[in-house]
């Protein structure tokens, strides 16, 4: 057993917030350009988070800090597991656990808006969970391993076998990135009927932690996209960039949908994934 996995994890824990913040900055800049604006400085996300840490500590209930901290830690842990090359399913479950903590934080504050945000977050969770599991299964079917370490070094162009899964995953990626049309539980940009939804009652450093967790999450998700193209790192990186740009684009050309549509989209994406996998397994059986 080597210690290389530890390097991946540590690098993720250190670099992901930096990369995530930069990605967020670039995202905001590009979004602004798409809207005909100049947009904030590139480092704006860091200023924001730095500012939030400077603010007074104000809470509705002390318990909220516990849940948010747990959210941050488990997001970081699941990302670290991923970059350490761990079992993809375990990563996904840790990831779900992290989100459940965020939801619980929103429930704990016991306020109408964060409550609705929490319910919606759960609906989102329910919407994307099947697809994310299927994505892992799809990668397994192609590479014969659930371990990220194995999937990442595969020579099989997974995307060619899993176009449907990838499309489905791209759909739920919109939910995960909290981008329009699926930014129903909380929203970065446009105003929302539920104020800030799940983060309504979080302020100051608590909100900053949510933000940092989001950076971690984004890097992790981009890493996940990379797995589909892992056989060629150059193409992989290009694909990640293109996918993210496409997400920004979609964010900018759609209205937010209702939760029903979010749920249906997520589940239909999963159906797409299933169809892809069914064909794949048929082909594999036929090939034997």
């Amino acid at each position: 057993m080597t210690w290389t996995w530890l390097i991946g994890a540590v690098l993720f824990l250190i670099l992901a917030p930096i990369a995530g913040g930069l990605i967020a900055g670039i995202d905001r800049k590009i979004t602004a350009r798409m809207q005909g604006r100049v947009g904030p400085p590139l480092l704006q996300p860091f200023y924001d988070v730095g500012k939030l840490f400077e603010k007074e500590r104000a809470v509705v209930t002390t318990a909220q800090n516990f849940y948010v901290l747990a959210y941050l830690i488990f997001i970081a842990v699941s990302g670290a597991l991923f970059f350490a090359g761990g079992d993809l399913l375990l990563v996904i479950f840790a990831f779900t656990l992290a989100h459940v903590f965020l939801v619980l934080g929103a429930y704990a504050v016991h306020s109408p808006y964060s409550h609705i945000g929490a319910e919606r977050e759960l609906i989102q969770l329910m919407a994307y969970e099947p697809m994310i599991i299927l994505a892992a299964v799809g990668l397994y079917m192609v590479t014969n391993s659930f371990y990220v370490a194995d999937i990442a070094v595969t020579t099989v162009p997974a995307i060619l076998y899993l176009p449907g899964v990838f499309l489905g995953f791209a759909t739920i990626l919109t939910i995960k990135l909290r981008k329009s049309p699926f930014d129903i539980s909380t929203s970065h940009h446009a105003h929302q009927e539920i104020v800030k939804g799940i983060t309504t009652e979080f302020s100051g450093s608590t909100l900053a932690q949510v933000e940092i967790a989001h950076w971690y999450e984004n890097v992790f998700l981009l890493g996940f996209i990379f797995l589909f193209f892992a056989w060629n790192p150059v193409i992989g990186i290009i694909a990640v960039v293109v996918t993210y740009l496409a997400e920004i684009f979609v964010d900018n050309v759609t209205a937010r949908v209702r939760w029903q549509a979010a749920l249906k989209s997520g589940w239909l994406a999963a159906v797409l994934g299933i169809a892809n996998l069914a064909i794949l397994s048929y082909m594999m059986l036929g090939g034997v």
């Binding site: 779900t96 704990a108 929490a118 329910m126 969970e129 099947p130 599991i133 999963a270 397994s281």
Partner: peptide
């Protein structure tokens, strides 16, 4: 795959109803 598909959806809905119950418990 049939089972996996069912399991994937099933565990997604499981998360929903348990988490909302938990949420009720922890509301301060």
């Amino acid at each position: 795959l049939v089972f996996i598909a069912i399991l994937a959806y099933g565990s997604a809905v499981t998360v929903f109803f348990w988490a909302k119950w938990m949420g009720k418990l922890v509301a301060v």
